[in-house]
Design a protein around this nucleic acid. Structure first.
Lengths: 200, 200, 200, 200
DNA sequence: AATGAATGAGTATTCATTCAT
DNA sequence: CATGAATGAATACTCATTCAT
C-alpha cells in the first residue's frame, strides 16, 4: 500500500510538473493572456478540469516562475561556494551567470513582462527573503567590506544598477530575438558599471 | 459653411484625441489585455462603436504610442540643434533627456510591455526610418568621426548598449514604482557605459 | 430657375439610380446580409446618411428588384406585340426570353434567394397585378382558347410548371456558376413541359 | 464505470442532437442570418458557449444539412435495391421519392437557400463522392446501357435536367407555402423531362 | 441635397472555472 | 486522480439608423 501511494504521489508530481512546464512554454511563446487553460491542458496531456487539482487558478501558474528563478540563482550561488577570489570578482561572475542562465529559461521573459504590467504585485520588487536578493546583497556587502566598493554607496544603490543592467539585457535580448552574444554583453556591461562604481 | 466644417472637424479631432488619450491612460494603468473597448469608450465619453470611426481596431490604438515617442525624441533633438559641444557630450545629454522624458509619459511603459510580449511585431526593433534610431545613430557616428569613440566599435554595438541602459532603467523605474532619481541614475549609467567604451 | 430645378431633380434621379445599382451589384455578389449600408454608400459614391434620403431603409432596397424584373418582362412582352404566331409558340418564346433575360440581370438571383428565405413576404407569389403574371396568364389563356393546351388544365397549373422550370434553371445556373448554355436548356425544358401538357 | 461513461456519452450525444435539430428548425424558419447562436442555445436548452463543444462555429451547423440529405437519399436507394423494373422506371421512382422526401425535411430548403447565396462553397455542386450524385449517375448510366436513354446524351446533361426539376419544385413549394400536390407534380415533371429525352 | 459623427443594440466566439461522474 | 460537459460573463467588432450641420 505504501508502495502504491508512493507510486501515485510520484505520478501526481510528474503531472504537476508537466502542467507547470507546459504552461511556462506556452506563456513564454504566446504571452500570458493569449494562452487558455485548455491550451495548457492539451499540451500537458490532461483535461482542463484537472489543472485545478494542482493549481488554484491561472494566476498561480504564472507566479510559479519566481520559484523557478530562485532555484536557478541558488544553484549558481551553490556552485560558487568554493570560489576564493575577491568578492568583487565573485559578484561579477555571479551577475554574468545569472543573466545568461535566466535568459536561457524562457519563462522569465514572460514573468518580466507580467511584472511590468502589474508592478503593484511587486513580483520583482526587492525582497530580502528571496534568494536572488539575499545572494546579491551578501556579495555587495562583502565587496564593501573588502574595500573594492566605496562605502559611500548603499547596498541598495549597487543592486539597483546591477538589476537595471540585467533587465535591460533581458529586454534587448528579447526584442532583438536573441541575435547577439549575451555572455559578452553581460560581462562588458557589468564590468562597466562595477568599474565606474569602484572609481568613485 | 467652411467655418462650420472646421467646427465639425475640430470636434472630430478632439474626439479622436480624447479616445487616444483615454486608451493610453487605461492601457498604462491596467495593461493592454485588461482594458476593453467599452472601457476606453466610457472614459472617452462616447460609444464603443464610435471608436471604430477613428481607429480600425484595438491594436492600432496601442501602436499609436510609437508615433508619440517619436514626437518626443524629435523635440529633444530639435532643442539640441544649436548645441556646439563635442558629439560625445551631446550623445550623453540626448540619452539622459530621452530616458527622463520617455518615462514621464506613462504610455511608453505600456508600449514596452507590449513590445516585450510581441517581439515578432518588431515595434521596438532597430529601424532606421524611426527618429529615435536616426538621431541616435547620427550622434554615434559623429562621436566616431571626432575620435571620442574608437573605430573598433560599430554604430550598432554602441546603440545596443545605450538601449539596454535606457530600457533597463525604464523597467526598474516601473518595478520600483518611481521611487528613485531617474535623472541621476540615467546620467550615471550612460556615463559608465560611454566611459567604458571610450577607454577601449 | 426652372432649369435649375430640373437640373437638380436630374441629379437626384441619377443619385438614386446610382444607389440602387450599387446595392444590386453588391447584394448579388455578396448576399443581402453581407452588405452594409456603408458598403453601398461607398460604392455609390455618397455618404451613408444620404441613402436615407432616397430609400427608407435597407429592406426597401431589396424590394426594388421586383420593379426591375417587371420592367424586363414588360419590355419582352412589348417586343412581341407584333408576333402573329400561334399562342403556344409565343408562350414558348416568352418563357425562354424571360429566363435568359432574367438571368442576365444578376440581382434576380439575390431576389430569389431573399424570397426563399422570406416566403411570408410573398415577393414571388402569384400576384395578378404584377406584369410577369399578367403576361403569362394572358398567353396561357390564349393557348387554351386556340386549343393548343387542353381545357382540363387550369391556367394556374400551367403557370406553376413554367415557373418551376424557370426557377429551377435559375437555381442550377447559379449553383453551377454559369457553366452551361442557358438558352438551349430553357428551350429544351420549356418544350418538354409544354409538349407533355399538350399531349394530355 | 463503463456503464457510467456510456451514460455520459449518451447524454452528450443527445445534447449534440438537440443542438443540431434546434439549429435546423430555427434556420429553416427564420433563415441562417436571422438566427443567433444565443437563439439556438436557448432552443436547445443549453448555454451559448456549450455549442462550441459540439460544433466549431455557426457555419458548421448549416453544413450538417448535407449529411442529413445524404442519409435520406441513401435510405431511398437502399429501399429500392430489390426493385427489378427497367432502369428508367427506377430512375423515375427515385427522383419522385427524392423530391418528396427532401421536401418533407424542412432544413433542406434552408440549405438550398444558403447554397444559393454562397455558390462558391459548392455545397450543392455535382460531387461524385456524395450519395445523391452517385446514385443518380448510376441510374442514368444503367438507362443508357439498357437503351432507354439515347447515347447522344451525357450522364451529366441528364442529371442537370433532373436537378433543375427537383430544385425548381423545391423552390415553388416553398414560395407557394406547400399549397400543391408535390408528389403529383414531381411525377408529372420528371416524366415530361424523361419522355422528352427518350424521344430524341 | 448631402455629410459624417454618433449611437446602441447585436453577434460570434472565447475562456476561466465548476462539478457530476 | 481524472474527465469533459456545462456555464455565464466578457469581448472585439458590426451596422442600420439618426441628426446636427
Amino acid at each position: 500500500m505504501k508502495e502504491r501511494m508512493t507510486q501515485r504521489r510520484k505520478q501526481a508530481l510528474e503531472t504537476k510538473e508537466r502542467i507547470r512546464s507546459a504552461a511556462f512554454e506556452l506563456f513564454n511563446q504566446y504571452g500570458y493572456e493569449n494562452v487558455s487553460m485548455q491550451d495548457i491542458a492539451a499540451k500537458a496531456g490532461c483535461s482542463a478540469g484537472n489543472l485545478y487539482h494542482y493549481f488554484p487558478g491561472k494566476d498561480s501558474l504564472v507566479l510559479q516562475f519566481t520559484d523557478h528563478v530562485d532555484t536557478i540563482y541558488e544553484s549558481i550561488a551553490g556552485s560558487m561556494q568554493e570560489d576564493t577570489r575577491p568578492a568583487v570578482e565573485r559578484l561579477r561572475s555571479f551577475m554574468v551567470r545569472a543573466i545568461v542562465e535566466s535568459n536561457r529559461e524562457e519563462v522569465i521573459t514572460m514573468g518580466f513582462s507580467h511584472a511590468l504590467q502589474h508592478p503593484e504585485q511587486k513580483t520583482l520588487a526587492i525582497n530580502d527573503s528571496r534568494p536572488y536578493f539575499r545572494i546579491l546583497s551578501d556579495l555587495v556587502r562583502q565587496c564593501i567590506m573588502e574595500g573594492s566598493i566605496p562605502e559611500s554607496y548603499t547596498t541598495e544603490e549597487i543592486m539597483r544598477r546591477l538589476m537595471i543592467i540585467q533587465r535591460g539585457i533581458l529586454f534587448q535580448w528579447r526584442i532583438e530575438q536573441r541575435s547577439f552574444d549575451i555572455e559578452a554583453m553581460s560581462g562588458c556591461l557589468v564590468n562597466a558599471v562595477l568599474s565606474d562604481i569602484c572609481r568613485h
